[in-house]
């Protein structure tokens, strides 16, 4: 894969009640946002365990966005307040261990903020694009991916030969 062709992969964990509905609104209002974002809906931002984020990086995400209801608007009253404390700790930990803070971003997007959702997604995708592919985490397992990629080529070759 050449550098020109590289497109950032960003995973978004969003809450069902605000951000997901906001994203939906962006869609119905025909607002365009980068297609690099894979959205995963969870019930509450308070339910986004940091292992989800780590898993996303493990599986090849170049960036992660976490988004939920504005403070005070949580469908379950306080989920996002609890989440906010955890994120304060978690993003500083990641940064300390050498994961650029732009690779993991947070936002509050309400059900009526279709426009804000588009802006946030564009910002995150742009930031990640600037940083380039998240080689660090992927290369933690390079010997393995090398084998599998090599294998893929072998398989493709075999398929080509066998028609």
């Amino acid at each position: 894969m050449t550098e020109e062709k590289w497109e950032p992969k960003v995973v978004a964990f969003v809450c069902n009640w605000c951000t997901y509905t906001g994203a939906d609104l962006a869609g119905t209002s025909r607002l365009k946002y980068p297609a690099n974002m894979k959205m995963i809906r969870v019930m509450c931002s308070g339910g986004i365990d940091p292992v989800f984020i780590i898993k996303a990086f493990e599986r090849g995400a170049d960036g992660v966005l976490i988004s939920g209801c504005h403070p005070g608007d949580c469908h379950y009253n306080a989920g996002n307040f609890h989440a906010r404390r955890r994120w304060t700790m978690f993003h500083q930990l990641l940064e300390y261990l050498g994961i650029d803070k732009n690779r993991l971003q947070f936002s509050w997007v309400s059900a009526s903020e279709g426009k804000k959702f588009v802006d946030v997604v564009s910002k995150v995708v742009n930031d990640v694009r600037e940083l380039g592919p998240f080689k660090g985490y992927k290369e933690l397992n390079s010997e393995f991916t090398a084998v599998v990629n090599g294998l893929k080529q072998e398989v493709n070759k075999a398929e080509a030969v066998n028609g």
Partner: peptide, 16 residues
């Protein structure tokens, strides 16, 4: 405990 509680005024400048 810190993680078992919250304050509505917790700072959040890192959140968009």
């Amino acid at each position: 405990t810190l993680v078992g509680s919250f304050d509505v005024k917790d700072k959040e400048e890192f959140i968009l």
